[in-house]
Design a protein around this nucleic acid. Structure first.
Lengths: 114, 114
DNA sequence: ACTTTATATTAGCATATGCTTATATAATAA
DNA sequence: TTATTATATAAGCATATGCTAATATAAAGT
């Protein structure tokens, strides 16, 4: 049985969302890690407000999930999204963002709630 | 040796281009077939001007190539583009557009210069 | 040369986008 | 309760986008 493909207009709207430097970076970052807003702010060197607005778009589209942990709200990739597979295919063509996260870690700026 | 991945901002700009219904449809159509402008106009039910402007964006980005054949200018997918592989991966998640082309064929509206 | 046909380009406009600044909310800490 | 911290939201603005309508171009046909 074949997987149901989303309609072309739904696919286009996902691509439109990813067609922004900031959002593509965010999605790439959360593919393998949970991150909180302040980490994005640090990594992307953008204002908190701006990051928050991008996150809202991603969340509204269902591409990312949020989960509160104490002070912080952590965002993660939503593998349940109808276009999740396509997004993962796309991310394979995007340069790895983990290095930046590791740098955060070394700088002691990584937030950990576990 | 590993393939060179385009920078994230280049990838984002390709996704932005594809993040439009009309352009995603066009790219999907030319993935396997050459099409001329009037065919797009017919298939997408849009004005010639609008289609032409979308094609220009795709051509400027190098995602499609154009080739004149007599009366018509045929557009085709450019497999040399740095993000061509990614685009093909994406298109696998897009519903097949061939049916529409076959309908054109049946209606005798398909342009053929061979 | 003139006309037709296919396509491209331009200008104008309404809407969308992404940012900044300022303010609100919500959970925690004192 | 009040203050602090992390995040969200709203307003305002400059720029980008996609469309239509009108016009230009360029090859082909007569």
């Amino acid at each position: 049985m074949e997987k149901i493909k989303p309609e072309i207009k739904d696919t286009a709207s996902v691509l439109k969302l990813l067609g922004d430097n900031t959002r593509l970076s965010i999605v790439s970052l959360v593919q393998n890690h949970e991150c909180c807003v302040c980490e994005f702010v640090e990594l992307l060197d953008m204002s908190q407000s701006s990051v928050s607005q991008h996150l809202r778009k991603l969340r509204d589209a269902g591409l990312v999930k949020e989960q509160r942990k104490g002070h912080w709200i952590f965002y993660s990739f939503n593998r349940e999204h109808p276009s999740a597979e396509m997004v993962e295919d796309i991310l394979q063509h995007v340069p790895d963002q983990n290095e930046k996260l590791q740098q955060l870690e070394r700088d002691g700026l990584r937030i950990n709630c576990d």
